[in-house]
């Protein structure tokens, strides 16, 4: 690690919950974009954005998938804003064992928002016609850090779930098949 300063574009999505109408277009398009091949299928359960939507309590929270965590938090947050009580963990981005948010439905692998790498604009932002999601970009100088690869995070989470030995056995079995 060098500790050098580098320029980085910070992308922020401004979320205005008052403008969200609960349509879940953002979930839909995110899941379609991340299908392989691109757009070949769609399934909001695979989306990297989730709408916490409870119309009768007027709760609408778009939440983005953030880091994967091995263990759930010891303490949890419960907010009341403008007299509305939000459920535990409503604003948390973590793919965490305490809930089924931000996990691939069949494998359980963690999902994380990648800001739609390769697209001009995050697609959830583009599809949100009510401007509940707005992209802002700015330049910042940051310390260079080695980023952990997606693959490594995925493998790590599998190891947490099944144990490292099981994963290694499975891998060696799979490689023999090929």
């Amino acid at each position: 690690m060098t500790g050098d300063k580098i320029k980085k574009t910070i992308k922020t999505i401004r979320i205005d919950v008052d403008k969200c109408n609960g349509c879940r277009a953002c979930e839909m398009i995110c899941s379609a974009f991340h299908a392989t091949p691109k757009y070949s299928s769609n399934n909001p359960a695979r989306s990297r954005i989730r709408i916490i939507r409870e119309p009768l309590r007027d709760l609408y929270v778009p939440v983005y998938a953030g880091e994967y965590t091995v263990a759930e938090c010891a303490g949890r947050d419960k907010y009341t804003i403008d007299g509305k009580e939000y459920d535990e963990c409503s604003f948390c981005r973590a793919s965490c064992p305490s809930r089924d948010e931000f996990k691939e439905p069949d494998s359980g692998l963690p999902l994380k928002c990648d800001m739609c790498e390769g697209e001009e604009e995050p697609l959830c932002v583009k599809w949100c016609m009510h401007d509940a999601l707005i992209l802002e970009e700015r330049e910042e100088e940051v310390e260079e850090l080695e980023e952990q690869e997606d693959l490594e995070i995925g493998l790590g989470s599998l190891a947490d779930k099944y144990g490292l030995q099981t994963i290694m056995d499975a891998l060696s079995r799979m490689s023999k098949k090929d």
Binding site: A35, P37, K38, Y39, S40, S41, N42, N43, R46, P105
Partner: peptide
């Protein structure tokens, strides 16, 4: 939580 497939995605 399952997929719906599209014949010609693009």
């Amino acid at each position: 939580t399952k997929d719906i497939n599209i014949a010609q995605p693009l």
